[in-house]
Design a protein around this nucleic acid. Structure first.
Lengths: 115, 115
DNA sequence: CGGAATCCCTGGGGATACTG
DNA sequence: CAGTATCCCCAGGGATTCCG
């Protein structure tokens, strides 16, 4: 079907990465500045936010717009492709949230049987 | 929406992990033994396969059946929940494969502009 | 404000060898 | 055959500092 190192695998990795998911979700349908993203995506370090945004921009999911003013003003938004990806990710998350009780039960079960 | 450390996040992590994706895809609609999985999922080490299967079983995605014979015979199959997860994952992969050209173009573009 | 650069450290994951 | 146990390594990610 597809192996561990092929284009689509790397695309998945970006999208489903720890911060990639959160950034995509945060940018759905709106435009945010760097510091706004930093506040919205709780727990992200500056380094990882910058890195994540760069990667997402490179993959064509995020559009970065820098205004030549001082102090600097940079805005981030999703491209159409990015909106699509974000939609998929959010769908996935909602599925996971819906199934969370079932998974937690399975875990408790497993732990009880394998103690 | 959801933060970096919450139940649904950990569920996502399992499913979208490097080998989690491949194992789920491999088990879709069929039953495989350990060594069959090892051959199907190219490049996986024994350790990672065992670890991945354990985790997926604990989350309730995989059902493990051991037959008390010698030599040992162990079969792995997806639970209904696992089939659902596998379906989502495969959908995701197909989307990624379909969009791969677009992403590759975006990358080339980005690299050209940022030298 | 929006990053880039640096240092540091942890744990995910590979290779190998051994066991029931 | 189906794993467990052990060792080892390095890339991913945090904290901090500096720059335009």
């Amino acid at each position: 079907m597809f192996s561990a190192q092929c284009p689509s695998r790397s695309i998945l990795d970006r999208i489903t990465s720890r911060w990639g998911v959160l950034v995509l979700a945060a940018l759905r349908g709106r435009v945010l500045r760097f510091s706004e993203l930093r506040r919205t995506v709780e727990g992200v370090s500056e380094k990882m936010l910058a890195q994540t945004l760069q990667t997402l921009e490179r993959e064509g999911f995020v559009r970065r717009t820098a205004y030549p003013v001082v102090p600097p003003r940079v805005e981030y938004a999703l491209t159409p492709l990015g909106e699509e990806a974000a939609g998929l990710v959010v769908g996935f998350v909602q599925w996971a949230e819906q199934k969370a009780p079932e998974v937690l039960r399975a875990r408790a079960d497993y732990d009880a049987r394998h103690r």
